[in-house]
Amino acid sequence: MNKILFSAVSKKFVMALAGLFLLLFLPVHLGINLMLLKDDPQPFNSAAHFMATFPLVKVVEVLLFLTILIHVVYGITLQIQNWLSRPVRYEVSNRAETSAFSRFMIWTGGSVLIFLIIHFFNFYFIKLGLVEGDPENFYAIAWQLFTIPGYVILYWVCFILLGFHLFHALQSAFQTLGLNNDFWTPVIKGLSLIYAIVVPLGFAVIPLVIWLIK
């Protein structure tokens, strides 16, 4: 059993599946966030309310957190193993022709994780009652946060890094799942690029538009 769950291939398999699940979740989140652009807080708040209370969503939520946890734990374990696989580094750093995004997954992923934790403090923990705030008015909280320039810059930087992470993530997941051939792989790479630009851009324009409206 150990062999199956913890072989080099299986660990990657788990990483890829978890990653793909998270990739599915992002557009949903983006869809709700785009409601922030409306003057009326009602649609956003009721969407948030729905997400917080609907039983089926609750189940998905647990799954989501589990996925994040697995993705993070596996990612860190794999990275440590990888570092240990080359105890003596090269004098001249590797110049092999690869995409830079693929080489810094642990760092881009780590940045996204830090953002996620901040995000939890700002919203999720309020819902759980761990942090003070009104869980029925996330609209106001979001608008308020977007008035802080430092926060917006951090927000943008994190989404740029998320884009980097996603660009390699999507195509890499397909490769790991064994879905690579001469015809489809370039298509998937193209889609990865589109996804990695469109989704983070969607998130990033929200504070910009809010600023402009103000």
Binding site: A8, Q81, N82, A96, T98, S172, Q175, T176, N181
Partner: peptide
Amino acid sequence: GNCSNTGACEARCPKQIKLTNIA
């Protein structure tokens, strides 16, 4: 170590063995 699909191996393989093999 583990494969993280960076493609460095394919780029530097003197016999140009392709990444599709890993998939």
